[in-house]
């Protein structure tokens, strides 16, 4: 992991959007999301459990996502998260804000 503090903060600032993206594809449980972030970033970014749950609780409070108990036949029950219609709107808007910021930053940096 070769990221300095600035990079890490920059990425962490987009945790909500990362989670919304993951849930817009399918309903997922906590550890699954952490694992997917590591996989997709090729190990470049590790989403910490604390960061993920802080984001998840905020998204829940805002009505962007909701949860339900999965029906696992074995092992402990898993809590699955699901995106709401409001969450899809939030995701689209966050994503377009990022596209805009990226375009502007590319011209400035």
């Amino acid at each position: 992991m070769s990221q300095n503090k600035i990079t890490s903060d920059l990425l962490r600032g987009h945790t909500d959007t990362m989670i919304l993206r993951l849930l817009s594809e399918a309903d997922r449980y906590g550890y699954e999301m952490v694992k997917l972030v590591a996989e997709r970033s090729g190990g470049e970014y590790e989403l910490k459990e604390a960061t993920m749950y802080s984001s998840v609780r905020r998204l829940e409070a805002d009505g962007d996502i909701e949860w339900y108990w999965g029906d696992e036949s074995q092992g402990g029950r898993r809590k699955y998260f699901r995106i709401t219609e409001k969450g899809r709107v939030t995701y689209a808007s966050n994503k377009s804000n990022w596209e805009y910021a990226k375009r502007v930053l590319d011209t400035l940096l």
């Binding site: 590790e46 910490k48 459990e49 604390a50 960061t51 802080s54 609780r57 409070a61």
Partner: peptide, 17 residues
Amino acid sequence: DSIGDIEETVKEIANLS
């Protein structure tokens, strides 16, 4: 190590709810 800064999150959640 995968937990990260949980104290911060706990405080946030405690306040939020």
